[in-house]
Design a protein around this nucleic acid. Structure first.
Lengths: 199, 199
DNA sequence: GTCTATATTTTGATAGAC
DNA sequence: GTCTATCAAAATATAGAC
């Protein structure tokens, strides 16, 4: 009873604080402009050694971060897919998720949309992006089969659809628009969906 | 007569070779993964000093490169604007330019679309991007006024339109599609134009 | 004026003391 | 086991010799 209270509490701490700080800095300044010293300071740590205790190298820190974010995205998408069989509604669910995330955790979306992982992570781990991408491609593929989505190469449909969505989110994140992402969501959805819908 | 032949010839040399090599490497590996040594080798130079002779710092090299590319884009857009008054045709001209460039000089487009200048250039020079962007925003603005383009925030129209175009070009540049950019051009144009046209 | 050699700085990573 | 101190490497920039 007393053992567990301690272990439960420590399970939220240092490692996550470091990852959070790194996420914020990578999203803001990029991987190469962020030193371990910066992360140490942002995380409120007293020494670099603490970081090296949890992560062997800077790369492996970035890798953990990337895996976490990607994995959490993947789980959310699986959730969405379970809720409805229609491609349009699944895509709509993903768009909702991204817009909500942009308002609630902008650094996460900034990290997803603007950090170029392949510039500092080896191919194998960068390939995880493919996991999420493949799931979305599958949604599109099914939509084409059922006739909801027009017959074009799924990759092109992906590019069109998320070209609109991602650019809208980047615009919000840049601060060029004065309102929350939520405000632009339904128009962006309609516009994106229109690029691929079969009419 | 004999003076000029020499000056004409030397005007194509070292500086341009260096810039070309840098463009290629920045586009391929990114600014931070490219060392001056890499550029030296790619340019076939014998010493680093040659680079330092032409450019004070690595940053200023990147800056020159960026200014060159941006300036050349700006000129092309001015050209296009002079040829026709219709927003749709001006945008079409820009799309044609980008797709042609993607086939003829992929590294230039890669540089434009994927290199994040603000990560290594000071704001003042990074602001040049605004010049090109502002010209395009003006085209959109005019299109809204004449009723060609639907009434939405010009920035949003920009985001929608180039979301489709840029993502299509990135897809081609990634090698994920097997054909030349040209093949995907007219469909991409139609799709992009449809995101902003007034119906 | 061109190359060799070196200085300087930054930062990631380690080793050793308390 | 946590921090101080140091090491090592890389890469930008400079200085000096021929």
């Amino acid at each position: 009873m007393d053992l567990d209270t301690e272990t439960l509490q420590t399970s939220i701490t240092e490692q996550d604080v470091i990852l959070q700080a790194a996420l914020k800095l990578f999203a803001k300044k990029g991987y190469f402009n962020t030193s371990l010293l910066d992360i140490k300071d942002a995380a409120g740590l007293q020494s670099l050694q603490v970081i090296h205790h949890h992560f062997k190298t800077k790369q492996s820190l970035a890798s953990s971060l990337y895996v976490n974010v990607t994995e959490s995205l993947r789980v959310s998408i699986d959730d969405i897919r379970r809720r409805t069989p229609k491609s349009s509604e699944q895509l709509r669910g993903i768009v909702d998720l991204l817009f909500t995330l942009t308002d609630d955790a902008p650094d996460v979306v900034r990290f997803i949309l603007t950090v170029k992982i392949n510039e500092f992570l080896p191919e194998e781990v960068a390939g995880l992006e493919t996991t999420v991408q493949q799931k979305i491609l599958k949604i599109i593929d099914e939509g084409i089969k059922t006739g909801e989505i027009r017959s074009i190469a799924p990759q092109l449909a992906f590019a069109y659809f998320f070209g609109v969505i991602d650019n809208t989110l980047k615009l919000v994140l840049s601060g060029a628009l004065d309102k929350k992402a939520e405000i632009y969501q339904s128009q962006a959805w309609l516009t994106a969906w229109n690029t691929i819908v079969k009419k």
